[in-house]
Design a protein around this nucleic acid. Structure first.
Lengths: 348, 348
DNA sequence: GGGGGCTTCGAAAACGGTTTCGTGTTACTA
DNA sequence: TAGTAACACGAAACCGTTTTCGAAGCCCCC
């Protein structure tokens, strides 16, 4: 049985041999260099088109020391916000002719380090990353510094640190939380609870601060018993009925939409009316916020825009390769967040 | 101001020059080749470790004609099922020392083609992809054939075609829909509606078939007016109250969880009790299914497993590079789906 | 002392491009 | 007629590896 042979990729060498010219001539002809005669140029280009020649990316990368690849490292991929950011990155990068290599750190320090080391050895021109939870806890960023010291530009987003020389793009979590809390207060709520994460990521900590400031600046005392710290994948019991029954509160700010939706479910089961008895506001304006019942008022983090901005900053740095001083001019961009008002809050 | 110079990446050449040996000696010493004397080996290795030498991936790729990169092309990244599959791919690939390059086709044929062409020119060793909606509509797969004919292995998942020589991994959508429908019927429902997509993807079509077969084999006639075809991002009006009020049905099978959750919201608003008056079953067991109220009985597609299997099949093909006959032995793996029973259905 | 074998290393080609520089040919000019 | 400039092209270096093959040096043995 005559197996169909694989069409091997054709190279400059093949074309050169076939047309009886040198490799350099082919290369230049394909770039329309005026070093090459008009007729030769046309002959080469025609033949190249005929056999569908495409230059080998790897060879070009090796020669140019540029891959046109961007490395993206995120803590989790099954996660609405991160995928949204990723979409923004991917779209902008694609427009500019870059591909995106993604690695998932799984919230682990070692995976973050390994992935960065792998990619840093020539595979990418720059990094966009959100720190893993473990990295934030350890406060250890030497793997990132190692990369920047090699001259590889880095953009941090959302989960950032300022202990590294790089660009940053994030939302003002404290302010977003403050605004959301004040929104609740303005609508007449007086006892606002907070559902936050057990292990304090930077992000949650800032949201808590914003929450506290809003209370303070409205003359309300922050009641510690109204702050509930939940594990990431909590059992139904963690958020127990007793929390609702032993405390009185009329609104809840949640640091993510899952906490909010689960809170609303339980509240409704216990007979509370939303938003009249208890209002809810969450962070991360994802599918859950949109389709929960009642739908959830939520802080939109505009991940797509964030990703696009991150990609833009990174690519600018990459392409400013030779302007050392410009390359060291680091910026921090704050993406304005906005509150998407839905059914889980009463009109202010 | 003395700017800190970038530490340039060191290469074999640097080490060779520094230690006054040849490049080949360094290369071999680092691989512990017994061609090199014990003392030289140790000297080289020590020095390499000292200056933290890491080989350049690009150069190795060029030499070996293997990148250890896998190209993944999916229609959308902000999508629970696809990210789940992606996680499976990424985990397995990482274990095997591969990186993953993702491109998003955005459900468009041209982006799918462009992305594949870009990556096929040396950037990757193989593809894993789910066809874009447009590609499925056009039934045009020459871009994929072109790739396979070059000897680049391809694994199709979920949105597949059998017009291309490649491996496939998918769930039995027809059977899953049939089982789900029968589950509704066994629980006493007699008039089962179907919420499906307007533009019939392969996947939706198969689910519809399964739905029809279940009805038929239970002696129930499929009522065309109980099949509602919705646009992807439909307005609230498309799924109008009139659909509920002008037809009588006691259960709904939905081809995705969004349709299901939105259906449930409307039904509840109209005073129907779920699951007693109307039961719901959806596809894609994501966050919405878990956290909707009532929570949604849903067909789990086990995306992570699907991704892992796809990656396994692909990497096997990649690494069987020289066994031509084995490489052409294409398989189709069906991942069993399962029904996750929750509150939106009554016990059978 | 010459042949054979082993150890240890280096030169060079190769991967597939880009780019610098040199060279041969032609034609124009003084 | 000789000098020179423009034109068209090729040789070769280079990017950073791997790998083949040859060679030098040494020891041993007959």
């Amino acid at each position: 049985m005559p197996r169909q042979a694989v069409k091997k990729k054709i190279t400059l060498k093949h074309i050169a041999r076939e047309l009886d010219v040198s490799i350099s001539t082919v290369s230049k002809a394909l770039k329309n260099s005026d070093e090459i005669g008009q007729d030769t140029r046309e002959k080469v280009q025609a033949f190249a088109r005929l056999c569908n020649y495409k230059p080998n990316n790897i060879a070009i990368s090796l020669k140019n020391k540029r891959t046109r690849n961007i490395g993206v490292i995120i803590p989790d991929i099954v996660h609405h916000f991160f995928t949204t950011v990723f979409r923004g990155i991917e779209q902008y990068a694609n427009e500019k002719g870059y591909n995106v290599i993604v690695c998932v750190s799984d919230e682990r320090f070692d995976k973050e380090v390994i992935n960065m080391e792998m990619l840093a050895n020539g595979s990418i021109d720059g990094f966009i990353l959100a720190l893993s939870a473990e990295t934030q806890k350890r406060n250890d960023f030497k793997h990132i510094r190692e990369v920047t010291e090699q001259g590889i530009p880095v953009v941090l987003f959302d989960r950032v640190t300022d202990e590294v020389d790089c660009d940053r793009v994030l939302i003002d979590d404290e302010r977003a939380a403050r605004d959301a809390t004040e929104r609740l207060i303005r609508s007449g709520k007086r006892r606002v609870a907070l559902f936050t994460t057990e292990s304090p990521l930077n992000v949650s900590a800032k949201r808590e601060q914003g929450y506290r400031k809003a209370l303070a600046s409205n003359g309300l005392a922050a009641a510690e018993e109204l702050i509930l710290r939940l594990p990431h994948q909590f059992e139904e019991e963690s958020l127990s009925e007793s929390f609702f029954q032993n405390r009185s509160f009329d609104a809840v700010l949640c640091v993510n939409e899952i906490f909010a939706v689960r809170g609303m479910r339980l509240a409704q089961r216990l007979g509370y009316r939303i938003p009249d008895d208890i209002s809810f506001i969450g962070f991360t304006d994802g599918l859950l916020s949109r389709y929960a019942s009642p739908s959830l008022t939520s802080v939109a983090q505009h991940g797509e825009q964030m990703g696009a901005v991150a990609a833009e900053m990174l690519i600018e740095k990459i392409e400013k390769e030779y302007d050392e001083t410009d390359r060291r001019n680091y910026r921090t961009v704050v993406i304005p967040s906005s509150l998407i008002e839905r059914e889980s809050t009463v009109l202010g």
